[in-house]
């Protein structure tokens, strides 16, 4: 995802909150910020019938998990202590470990674990209300001055 000139604040939670509210797609999908500390962000989304990918089972579409992961990873980059002014996804790989349980909320936690002058490296995990993760993600993102 591509982000986001303008909103510069020192506070990671405030940064992540602004980040979430200005993205029309995040709002349209009902994503909510759970928690943000520098470089680590947690975002959640309720299960909803309109985001189902398999009408036979009621399981969320993989693309929904992608959107959540991408948003969460982008937010982790923006809240990193180095504070890039903008970021955009270079690549994002998602491993679908198991189906998210229908009816359960999904939350993702992303960590920007390394940043160079040009590139940020991020990993993320998605969980439903169960114990084992639903999906993991690894991505690289641009760092804009």
């Amino acid at each position: 995802m591509e982000l986001l000139p303008g909103a510069r604040t020192e506070d990671a939670a405030e940064m992540a909150r602004i980040f979430m509210t200005v993205i029309p797609h995040a709002r349209a999908m009902g994503m909510e910020l759970v928690e943000a500390t520098p470089g680590v962000v947690e975002i959640a989304m309720p299960w909803s019938p309109e985001f189902v990918g398999d009408p036979r089972t009621g399981v969320l579409h993989g693309g929904v998990i992608s959107a959540l992961m991408d948003t969460c990873c982008g937010a982790a980059v923006m809240t990193h202590p180095a504070r890039p002014a903008t970021t955009a996804t270079i690549d994002l790989r998602i491993d679908y470990l198991r189906s998210a349980t229908p009816g359960q909320r999904v939350r993702t936690r992303a960590e920007c674990f390394h940043m160079t002058r040009s590139v940020a490296f991020v990993r993320a995990v998605a969980r439903d209300e169960g114990d084992t993760p639903v999906a993991t993600a690894t991505g690289s993102f641009t760092v804009g001055g």
């Binding site: 995802m1 993989g62 959107a67 992961m69 994002l92």
Partner: peptide, 10 residues
């Protein structure tokens, strides 16, 4: 949104 692009590709 990058997630939309990913969802469309998937």
């Amino acid at each position: 949104h990058g997630g939309v692009t990913a969802a469309f590709l998937e």
